[in-house]
């Protein structure tokens, strides 16, 4: 099949490469771009481990064909920390003990980021809804919700300081 010219912005950098149009965004990120922080847990949109942001919206990269993401601004877990400094959400996940095996963590952090970018003071119910597409088999979710709450408080304080 004729390759598709995949042009997009990934973690703030322009990307331009030929891809088989039948491939998933997940494969292009992991195999072609080496961004293996995006995980595959089920390959059918059930677990959320492959969550990335397309123009700020969380999607399962296993359910997105590469051409569908063309022209988009894509954020993966590798693009969340800025210049080696952890994002407040990443710090909060570490402090709250929301990271155990770590396999759901990248998707969880991006789902949380999508929420907090739109709703800086979410209720617990809003947090639970935001991560409802992301399965975690270790933590029982309590500490993940706590981490997102903590991150929201930190981000609010940072905003206030500016």
């Amino acid at each position: 099949m004729k390759p598709f010219r995949f042009r997009a912005t990934v973690n703030g950098r322009p990307v331009d490469l030929p891809v088989d149009p039948r491939r998933r965004l997940l494969d292009v990120l992991r195999e072609d771009l080496g961004l293996t922080g995006t995980k595959e847990g089920c390959g059918e949109g059930e677990c959320g481990a492959c969550t990335v942001l397309l123009d700020g919206r969380p999607v399962n990269a296993c359910l997105v064909l590469a051409p569908e993401a063309a022209g988009c601004d894509i954020t993966t877990i590798e693009g969340v920390a800025v210049e080696g400094r952890l994002h407040p959400i990443q710090e909060a996940f570490l402090e709250a003990g929301a990271v155990q095996c770590g396999y759901c963590t990248p998707g969880m952090i991006l789902a949380a980021k999508a929420l907090l970018d739109k709703d800086p003071r979410p209720t617990d119910q809003a947090i639970k809804t935001a991560v409802s597409g992301n399965l975690c088999r270790c933590t029982g979710y309590v500490k993940i919700v706590k981490a997102v709450r903590l991150a929201a408080a930190r981000l609010a304080r940072e905003e206030g300081a500016v």
């Binding site: 922080g37 993966t76 877990i77 969340v80 990443q90």
Partner: peptide
């Protein structure tokens, strides 16, 4: 291994 897991590395 926390920092590696939250940054995807």
């Amino acid at each position: 291994d926390g920092a590696d897991k939250v940054t995807g590395s």
